[in-house]
């Protein structure tokens, strides 16, 4: 399908003020947009990155970028926004709550600095992506929430404090742990709720 010139072309202005024009055609389950290479503000196409100059494959949940010279297509997943909270209670200390944390489910992260001495740096991350199934023969999509603690310096790998998973269509994902058999136990709770 090729639409008429005024209706088919979707002009997109990049952050570097590049205007790109694509021509769309329909395939059975996907829309394909081919660049028309009309970059109004630049003459050097080699400086283009991201969507500019790429062929777009648009489906209901993904946007694929096909760029000349790249062997692997860039798969951009459609992101949904979640509203999260984290509640921490170190051993023998007060509860600390972080609320109203807005992150997206395609690898969105938020950094938390605890109110302790010394302060700890935590990272809350939400990722919806494909994973090998238990059998190893298939791929399944999962929504996973992580809470990492950064190392003492940049050379140390962040340690995983806790994780929780849900099916990709879930509107909520969270976890909660509590130490047992200790008078002042440590607790870690986090939950994310889809808001759009």
């Amino acid at each position: 399908m090729r639409l008429t010139s005024t209706q088919t072309t979707a002009s997109t202005t990049a952050s570097s003020a590049i205007t790109c024009v694509w021509s769309w055609e329909r395939r059975p389950n996907v829309w394909v947009a081919r660049p028309q290479n009309t970059f109004s503000n630049t003459s050097d196409n080699s400086k283009l990155s991201g969507l500019a100059g790429a062929t777009l494959w648009l489906s209901s949940d993904e946007l694929w970028l096909e760029t000349a010279g790249q062997t692997v297509l860039s798969e951009l997943g459609r992101a949904r926004t979640y509203d999260c909270y984290v509640a921490l209670k170190p051993r023998g200390a007060k509860v600390q709550m972080f609320m109203g944390l807005k992150i997206h489910d395609r690898g969105g992260t938020v950094e938390l600095i605890t109110d302790e001495t010394p302060a700890r740096k935590l990272n809350l991350m939400l990722r919806r992506g494909t994973w090998p199934s238990n059998s190893g023969n298939n791929l399944v999509e999962l929504l996973i929430l992580y809470l990492h603690e950064e190392g003492a310096n940049d050379k140390l790998q962040p340690s995983l404090l806790d994780t929780g998973w849900a099916t990709p269509e879930s509107s909520r994902v969270g976890f909660g742990i509590e130490e047992e058999g200790i008078p002042e136990p440590k607790t870690e709770n986090a939950c994310c709720k889809k808001i759009n």
Partner: peptide
């Protein structure tokens, strides 16, 4: 054609990220 364009416009708007692909 106008109808198809409305479908594209509705579908295209949003946020996208390739972090899950990179992780995989």
């Amino acid at each position: 054609s106008n109808l198809q364009l409305v479908k594209i416009s509705t579908l295209l708007i949003g946020e996208y990220d390739n972090e899950p692909q990179r992780y995989y």
